[in-house]
Amino acid sequence: MFTIAVQQQQYKTYILSDETVGSQLEVVPERGGIITRWRIQGKEIFYLDTERFANPDLSVRGGNPILFPICGNIPDNTYTHNGQQYTLKQHGFARDLPWEVTDQVTEDKASLTLVLNSNEQTRAVYPFDFQVLFSYELQGNILEIRQQYKNLSSTSLPFSTGFHPYFLTDDKTGLKFEIPSQQYQDQITKEIHPFDGNFDFNRDEIDVAFKQLTSQSASVTDNSRKLKLTLDYGNKYPILVFWTLKGKDFYCLEPWSAARNSLNTGEHLTVLEPGSSYTASVRLTADFF
């Protein structure tokens, strides 16, 4: 049986449940349309820094933040369009703005659809008209995120999009990675390194991008939690970013549609013609063993 309940916590929270298998999803539309929690039989999939989440002035560190209209940052947080300079902070504004719920479904799955429309606030930093629709779908141990991006402008709409999921882990040294690439670029030094399936978790920060992907699926097995997570991202996401900080109980494996600074470089940048739309989907499967 599938249900959607609404709770007034610090923020209005939508709780999607598949009661047959005991899976549950929590979504907070007004805090960037974010999924904050995903549980299967009481076991948390996502990490959440509750102190940062409670402070609306801080970006959320946890759950599954939305990246739009850029992934990563751009130099000095600025770019130029039609001779005018704009300021756009890291990962864009979608993760900070309130989204609006437009539809709920509890037949055959629990599905919640949210929308983010361009407004005066977005146009001040990104001079385009758009509509972004997300449907979060929960069924068994699978979370699917269906997306639609619409260009409502009279000019072309340049953007990149992605997700920044924070996966909870007890012991990073017990993680086994199956990432379909033999090399990555260090996002800090820009150096290219071969990838043999392992990371040096003694480093203070790991921030790397896999750009030579040979398939559209990756997985991480967490032996300490007896959990295998599979990420299926389709051909709309040609880049995977891995990020973690030493001493923190999370790692992030992030599907990006374009590279850091693509708004300036054009690398993998999506450009929508006026009136056109673009769809994409990301699926996460959580298997405890």
Rank of each mutant, 00 (worst) to 15 (best):
E51N: 09
R52G: 04
A54D: 13
A54I: 03
P56I: 13
D57S: 07
L58D: 12
L58R: 15
L58E: 14
S59F: 10
V60C: 05
V60Q: 01
V60F: 03
R61G: 06
G62P: 01
G62K: 00
G63Q: 02
G63S: 06
N64W: 04
P65W: 00
I66G: 00
F68T: 10
P69N: 03
I70F: 04
I70Q: 06
N73R: 15
D76R: 13
D76F: 12
D76W: 10
N77P: 10
T78Y: 10
T78A: 13
Y79W: 13
Y79V: 01
T80L: 10
T80V: 14
T80R: 15
T80H: 13
H81E: 11
H81S: 12
N82I: 07
G83Y: 08
Q84G: 04
Q84W: 01
Q85W: 11
T87R: 14
T87N: 14
T87E: 14
H91N: 08
H91W: 06
G92N: 09
F93L: 08
F93R: 01
F93E: 02
A94Y: 01
D96W: 06
D96M: 07
D96Y: 07
L97E: 10
V101L: 09
T102L: 06
D103C: 09
D103M: 08
D108R: 11
S111K: 13
L112W: 03
L114I: 07
L114F: 09
V115W: 04
N117G: 11
S118C: 01
T122Y: 03
T122Q: 06
R123S: 06
A124Q: 12
A124V: 02
A124D: 05
V125M: 05
V125C: 09
Y126D: 02
Y126P: 00
P127A: 09
D129S: 12
F130G: 11
Q131L: 07
V132Q: 06
L133P: 00
L133R: 13
S135C: 12
E137C: 10
L138Q: 05
L138W: 07
G140H: 05
N141C: 08
N141D: 12
N141L: 05
I142K: 15
L143Q: 11
L143N: 01
E144L: 11
Q147F: 02
Q148W: 04
